[in-house]
Computed example of a mutant assay.
Amino acid sequence: MDDVRDALYALAVGTLDYINESDDTKYGPIAREEKEFIDLVKNGNYDDVLDADLQEEKYAEIKKQGDKRILIFDTDNIPEVVLQNHSETFQALHKRCNGFAIEHRRGIARVMNEDKGLVDEVFRLWEDRIPSHYLPVLEEALILRALELEENLHQQTVYQWRREISDNYANNGRDPNEAQNLISLCSTGYLDEGNVFDNMYTDMVENGTRSKDEFKDVFSKYVDQNPFAVFVRSRGRSTDKICGDLRDKLDVIHEWEESPGFVELCGKGENTHNTIIEVRNEIESDFDGKMRTRRNPGIDQIIVMFEPFVT
Rank of each mutant, 00 (worst) to 15 (best):
N226T: 11
A10H: 02
L71I: 08
S22V: 11
D76G: 04
E139M: 14
A101E: 12
L40P: 01
G236T: 06
H273V: 06
L135Q: 08
V49D: 09
G194V: 07
R5E: 05
N20M: 12
F306A: 07
L71P: 03
A10N: 14
D167Y: 11
I165V: 15
Q55H: 04
V310P: 03
N77Y: 06
I276N: 05
E57G: 06
F306D: 08
G269E: 02
E151N: 15
H254W: 13
I30R: 07
C186N: 06
V122E: 00
S238I: 15
I30Y: 05
D3L: 12
W256E: 05
T157Y: 11
G267I: 02
I242D: 10
C243P: 02
L135H: 07
T89G: 05
R163V: 10
F37N: 00
I72W: 04
K95V: 07
Y190C: 11
P297I: 06
R233C: 01
Y27G: 06
D288Q: 08
K64L: 03
I283Q: 05
C266W: 05
I276E: 02
R5T: 08
V310E: 10
R96L: 09
Y18W: 13
Y27D: 11
Q301K: 11
Y59Q: 07
N98C: 11
V81I: 15
L153K: 14
I242Y: 05
K35R: 14
I130F: 06
I70E: 09
T275N: 04
N171R: 15
D23E: 08
G28W: 10
F262R: 12
K26A: 07
Q301C: 10
D51N: 13
D6S: 10
N271P: 00
N271T: 09
R162E: 15
M112V: 14
D240F: 09
N274C: 02
E151S: 09
S187P: 00
E56G: 02
D67H: 08
Q301N: 15
E148H: 02
F73T: 12
E282W: 01
S234Q: 11
V230G: 04
K68P: 01
P297W: 03
R105C: 00
C266E: 09
G269W: 02
C97P: 02
D251P: 02
G14P: 10
H104D: 11
Q225A: 10
L246T: 12
H154R: 13
D240A: 13
R106W: 05
P260A: 01
G269F: 01
R247P: 00
V310L: 14
G289I: 03
D245Q: 13
E307M: 13
T89K: 02
N113A: 15
